[in-house]
Write a protein that binds this DNA or RNA. Sequence first.
RNA 1: GGCUAGGUAGCUCAGCUGGUUAGAGCACACGACUCAUAAUCGUGGGGUCGAGGGUUCGAGUCCCUCCCUCGCCA
Length: 572
Amino acid sequence: MARILITSAIPYINGIKHLGNLVGSQLPADLFARFMRGRGHEVMFICATDEHGTPAELAAAKAGVPVEQFCADMHKVQADIAAGFRLSFDHFGRSSSQRNHRLTQHFAGRLAEAGLIAEVSEKQVFSVDDNRFLPDRYITGTCPNCGYESARGDQCENCTKQLDPTDLINPRSSISGSTNLEVRQTKHLYLKQRALKAKLEAWIDSKKDWPILTTSIAKKWLNDGDGLQDRGITRDLYWGIPVKKGDQPWPGMEGKVFYVWFDAPIEYIAGTAEWADAHGLDDAAWERWWRTDKGAADVTYYQFMGKDNVPFHTLSFPATILGSGEPWKLVDYLKSFNYLNYDGGQFSTSQGRGIFMDQALSILPSDYWRWWLLSHAPESSDSEFTWENFQASVNKDLADVLGNLVSRVTKFARSKFGDVIPAGGTPGAREAALIDALTTQLRSYEANMAAMEVRKSAADLRALWVAGNEYLQAAAPWTVVKSDPDQAAMMIRLAMNLIRVYAIISRPFIPDAAAAMMHAVGSADWTWPDDLAAAMQTLPAGTGFNVPENLFRKITDEERADWQQRFAGIRT
RNA sequence: GGCUAGGUAGCUCAGCUGGUUAGAGCACACGACUCAUAAUCGUGGGGUCGAGGGUUCGAGUCCCUCCCUCGCCA
């Protein structure tokens, strides 16, 4: 039994995520976690909300509630939706937790002791009326280059020129519109990433089995232009983790907080500590997942994220870990995803375009979405959601191939043999051939799942389902029963056992349907079918079974057209 | 403009270090079956593998040029 640590990129607290966010990190991470658990491995699967920073403060202000309250409420909302999608986190933490405060401050202290923190004095725009420093992109003004009146302080959208906020003509606060702005001197901490470049590069180079998408992004940041840059890790904000050096004050940094991208990945670790706290366990319980000197040496650590998160996970976070000089676990395998597009354009949180997680659950149960999203995961390139494709895949794969298989077996069994799995008959060459074919396909499925080849795994799983229909079609128990009821009973007994096997191996993709299948055949034995021939004899004759409701219903053309129209616009 | 990835059947995609008639699912046509959610199973049609050069006995697979899409960066 192996020990598997899995983290999903943590979603930002501000609002409900769309299906593109889901399929890029949380959902494939869940698939992998469920698979590894199913195989009997010890799994720790951690996710959290990423709560700090200006957008959360502004959203809270807009909602008219204190930011602490806003984040607590939104965390609850996101946790409920995650549960709705059956995301099986061992813990869904919060980057604003006290655990993360202490750990983030601890890392900063260690980095300072290692001489990897620089204090830099710089000029920044302060909005008097808002009573806050403004991030560059929250300053609006006229572009000195092209005259565009709504240029942002970091870049003009119109002429794409890179700007400094002080370049803007008639600058104003994007928050309040106030023009009462001042340039003030402020001091910030920088993480000396340049000093860690050689270490980071050696570490990246040691990862021979990482996808090109991952290593190329990392190497570009390492070597492009002037190479890896030192990075500011503090901000003049209210909402964040107070800057401290371990548990000691940091002179000159009073009232400042750490930058959200510094504390967010640390929450992977802190979230595991939160898990221990929530279960009344001591520190050793979570440290054995993260400290190689305290039991984590045999842990394999997998991260899942969208491609936009790769630089932070290949460089910034490892710089924090390596720079600390302490034996924290570094990621072993990093699975990154491209983007999912929506009907010809991008999903967009800021523009409200696409389908959001709560909307998805309001029209169909999670299994439908899980299946489509995972079987079309944007692995090798961006992929596209269309309602036509969604309807076709769900109806064919789930309703026709799998759902109908369960129906035809259980209904036939009920009408011909009664309430229990029937006895009699002897398996022959056809049954042996089926088990051989299933075994081969199952080994392929396991290999693809272990390699996080999501689409290929889905294709293998579907092929396993199809093999069941092929067998039934060829064996034709509905014909055999007329002349040799015992042989028909044997076929049905085998099919019932096959449904149980399907429940186990399908569970990572469609957990609810898997539970329904297991219930239908009157079992609760989720042991992975390492030996398929043996697994196919798990349910003995005499076992009671149920005829379930249809596992999946079909999406009608009318529904598709309705949803297509309903979700065509912009969410407000 | 620089960089990554991609451009393969109507659609969504596989095709590892170059090697017999380029594959799968869906869709389509025909057939079988009738236990089942008008489900299932079988067979078949359909592609000059973005364009043009080149290397090679042989290229979707390597090299060069160009076109297009997406993203990142500037």
